[in-house]
Each structure stands twice: as C-alpha cells, then as structure tokens.
Write a protein that binds this DNA or RNA. Structure first.
Length: 430
DNA sequence: CGCCTTGTACCTAGGTACAAGGCGGTGCCCTAGT
C-alpha cells in the first residue's frame, strides 16, 4: 500500500522516527504548492525536505545543483531511498542524456538533477513543455547571490525558468544572511513564501585569529597548529600558488600533505578527495575549490592562511570542522596586506566606474543603481571580514551577528572570550 | 595588495639590478575543427 502521508514516508522509506526542526515546515510547504526558503545548518537534513515531497507528489521534482559531484551525491542518496532519480550533465554520454530526457518526459523519472546552465541550454528547451514538474528545488541557493552576478549568470535566470516550469520552488542553503535571503526570494519571484531559518550557532566550534607577518612565519604557525591537531585537518589558502607553497613547506617539515585546487587534473582531484575522506588523519591544503560535498565528520581543525572574501564564505569553509559535534577549531591567520587579493578580485568582478562616459552609459541604461549597489555590497562583505579579524570582543558574536543572529555574554568558545591557550587546548592534541 | 614575469639599461657580452605591468579564486556548458 502506498501513502502520501509525509510521516509515513519518513518512517517507511528513510527509517527516521520524526522530522527534525524545519523539515516538516518545508515538506508541508512543498505539498501545499507554496514557495519556501529553508536555511538549515550543515548536517540539518536538507535532502529530506525535497525527497519526501518527491515521493508524496505525482510528477517530477527538479533539483538544481551547482556541481556535478553534488549531483552524484544526491543521486546516490535518492536511489538509496528507492526514488527513481536521474541526472543530466555534461559528464554523461550524449546518448544517455537523451535517454534520461525521454524517460523524464514519459513520466518515468521522479527526481531529476541538473545544473542551472542546463535549464537554459538550447538542448533542454524542447524538453520543458513535456515535463510535469511538481517541485523545483534550488540546492545551495546562496549561489544565486554569491555567483549570479558574474561567475555563473545562469543563477540569475532561475526566476524566469521557474515560471516556465510552472512549479513551486524550494530554495535550500546552509549559509545566508538576511540580505542574501531577500535576494534569493526576489530573484526566484517568491510570493507569500514559507520561511524556515535555523540557528547558525554551532557550540562545538571554537573560533580564533592568530597573527603572522610573512609567508615564512605563516608557514611556521600553520605547521605548529597542524602537526599537533588530532583528526582530519584542512588548510585554506587564497591562491593556487600559495597552496603549492604551503604543501611544499609542510612536506619539508615531514608532514604528508596533499594539495587541491581547480588547476589540478580531474584524477588528481578525485584522489585527494578520497585521501581526505579515508586517511586516518589527513592533511589537505586547498583553495576554495575544495569542500562542497565533502562530508567528513571528524575534521578537528580548519586553518585559513588568509581569511575569505566574505563571512559567508568563511563560515561555509570553516564550518566543515566538527560535523561530529565534538570540539573543533577554526583558526584564521592575519597579517599585513590581508584582504588585498579579495579587493583585487572585487575590482574584476564588480569593477568601479572608470570614466564619465561609462557613468552616462550606465545611467541611460538604468543599470547604474544596481551596479553601484552590488559593488557596495561586496565592499561591505570585505569590511565585515576585517571586523571579524580585528574585533576586541567576542568573535562568535560578530560572526552570528552577520547572519542576523543576536547573542549576548561571553561564548567560552573563541580566543577573545576564552583566551588562545583555552581554545587550542579544547581540541586536545595527538 | 603582493607576486612573478618581462623588459630595459648598463656597456661592450652576458650577467645584474631594478622598473613596469599583469595576474591572482570558484564551474557549468558543448561549438567547431583536429
């Protein structure tokens, strides 16, 4: 006997006794045909929010995902729950892409994973009128805001696409400030949405910033941190070159260290990911290319050679620590010239207006306001990072404040409240 | 912002020294021509 009752589905198909906070609200919204925004913390069970409606509803659930590797993860998990799930992406042979498209049009697919670019591609166009989409899910929805303007403009077009598909939208993310949440809703054209925003605070994470003046001193500080920390360890650096340098420096000091960035061949990237997932006590140095879809529970230390370009990015990267709930340390090194590279990236992706002619052109086309606003918003993100690095008060309060969460009193979990020896001691040493 | 590469001056032949300028981070997509 089949049932469309969410709780029965949860128990029978997934083996969980009850929904966790937020899941029920998001599932019910999907079943009622309402738009919904879910900000659920890492490990908060986001996939269930659309897998359960996918089973309960007739028709197709389309899940938009930013990375092919994430599609692979979602595909595996959905199939484990007995869902007829498929993906269409450039990694598949053309014949297989066509076959999946035909199956979806014939109603033989329950869950379809695609990149946003795919939804806009001419090759996908003929398929759209044939699909009976009952739910459109935007996974990692913060990408709409952080990438949509420049890096992956397809994210800006999702509002148009959702109307063509004629389905309610469920936007899911683990990291979104109030501003980003508003932008997601605006771009997707939400009306009377259901919203669920979980707490960003993770008590087991310890936060600290350490001074380091030169690259050589940074290497020494990194080594001191990394060689004693138990569990899996991760170092983030701002450039590929710096990643290689750090790897070499750790290796010279006798630590097995693997490097990861987007300039490495596919096979090498896969190998390093597997090393990080499987080795007893791995150490990986990476750019921000590393992490999405990486899900190791016992990461005890995440060190940033330099802080990220925004607190959203920093929280996403550092937040890969301590998923098992045990104490874990998130340290950022700080020195002269920090943030320069992010300002340089910003000048490329959101350039300042360079000439009177350009100013007039933008004003005439009506794009002046949004152009100024976007650059201004990016600069505000950089200033927030500086505030986090330089605060004399509680770091946790600065971090949570950025995500719109208030908090008072000392936290006992950052170097300002507890002192550096205190937070360092909390994760123990090998 | 800081780095690395490239170019020029130096003056008589291949190095040295320094200035100028470009570049740095994320990933989908699959055209047209080997």
């Amino acid at each position: 006997m089949t049932t469309s009752d969410p709780l029965h589905i949860l128990r029978d198909r997934f083996g969980f006794p009850a929904f966790r906070t937020g899941q029920r609200e998001l599932v019910d919204a999907a079943l009622a045909g309402r738009d919904a925004l879910g900000v659920l913390p890492t490990g908060g069970g986001k996939s269930l929010c659309f897998q359960v409606p996918c089973i309960a509803l007739p028709g197709l659930t389309v899940v938009v995902s930013p990375l092919i590797s994430l599609m692979a993860d979602q595909l595996r998990r959905a199939r484990e729950a007995g869902i007829q799930a498929q993906a269409i992406h450039s990694g598949l042979p053309p014949a297989q892409r066509d076959q999946v498209g035909r199956a979806a049009a014939a109603g033989e697919v329950e869950l379809l994973l695609v990149a946003p670019e795919r939804l806009l591609a001419p090759s996908f166009e003929p398929l759209i009128p044939l699909l009976h989409v009952s739910l459109l899910v935007i996974d990692e929805a913060h990408c709409i805001s952080c990438w949509g303007h420049d890096f992956r403009p397809a994210y800006r077009e999702l509002g148009r696409i959702r109307h063509r598909l004629g389905a309610p939208v469920q936007a899911l993310t683990a990291t979104a400030t109030p501003k980003v949440r508003a932008e997601i809703e605006e771009i997707l054209g939400f009306r009377r949405p259901v919203r669920f925003v979980g707490s960003f605070d993770r008590e087991n994470l310890l936060w600290a910033v350490r001074p380091a003046r030169s690259p050589a001193e940074r290497n020494q500080v990194l080594y001191d941190l990394v060689h004693r920390a138990p569990g899996a360890r991760l170092i983030y650096a701002a450039t590929r070159k710096r990643v290689e340098r750090i790897r070499a420096s750790m290796a010279r000091r006798g630590l097995r260290t693997e490097a990861y960035h987007a300039g490495l061949p596919e096979g090498e990237r896969t190998r390093v990911q597997a090393f990080f997932m499987e080795a007893r006590r791995p150490l990986v140095v990476a750019t921000n290319a590393f992490g999405m879809g990486i899900d190791r529970a016992d990461v005890r230390l995440v060190v940033h050679d330099q802080l990220s370009g925004s607190l959203e990015d920093y929280y996403q990267e550092a937040g890969r620590a301590g998923r098992d709930g045990e104490a874990a340390l998130c340290v950022a090194l700080r020195g002269p010239g920090d943030g320069g590279i992010h300002r340089a990236f910003l000048d490329r992706t959101h350039p300042p207006i360079r000439s009177p002619g350009e100013l007039v052109r933008l004003w005439r086309s009506g794009d002046l306001g949004s152009r100024l606003e976007r650059r201004h918003a990016q600069l505000a993100k950089l200033r927030a990072v500086d505030r986090y690095a330089g605060t004399k008060g509680c770091r946790r309060r600065v971090l949570l404040g950025w995500f719109g969460e208030r908090r008072s009193g000392p936290c006992e979990g950052c170097d300002r409240c507890r002192g550096w020896p205190g937070v360092l001691g909390a994760i123990g040493s090998r």
